[in-house]
Amino acid sequence: MHEVGLMTNALAIALDYATREQASHIHQMTLRVGDLSGVEPEALRFAFDVVTQGTIAEQAQLKIESCPTLCFCHDCQAEFRPTELGYECPICQTWSTSVLRGKELELASLEVS
């Protein structure tokens, strides 16, 4: 439900950088979205079409790079991907909520001219 607000933020950041680059068009915006960010990519795409209307990003493509959750087990000193069932280390079966990746929610890059 807050994807429109997030995309509005993303566009504001993008327009700011485009101005610094003296660009007149934004061709592509690349977002990095973690699985734990609570954001639905399809809702982001919908919001993108709405908020970019009438801006120099109107014709831009939205690229979304999803970031799977990656945890770290301190006992095994090993990284692991949690399953649907939870954050259990596959080696020692202890639970770890030490999240290395998966919370990303950022504007990664722009293609402008």
Partner: peptide
């Protein structure tokens, strides 16, 4: 500025 080029940003949307 006249040629398409990539700008690396990496800024949080909630910054």
């Amino acid at each position: 500025p006249d040629r398409p080029h990539t700008v690396d940003i990496r800024e949080r949307l909630l910054s």
